[in-house]
Amino acid sequence: MRTLRIDWTACDGRGLCAELLPELLAADDWGYPVIRGAVEVPAPLAGHAERAVRACPRRALRLA
């Protein structure tokens, strides 16, 4: 299973990922995705996760 993680030094809290992948990512008080460490992406959400990774303007969201 693939996992999702954030490069916090790159993330600017633009919030696109939380909009595109609300099943896995909520936005915190400041618009940053609430995620700790690496989060497993269930197979049915793989496509949405890839779309969120591509949409990140800071390239901070990573799929591994």
Partner: peptide, 12 residues
């Protein structure tokens, strides 16, 4: 001051 949760969250 690099990571949003720390930059915003620690002062709060």
């Amino acid at each position: 001051g690099q990571c949003g949760p720390c930059l915003n969250g620690l002062p709060r």
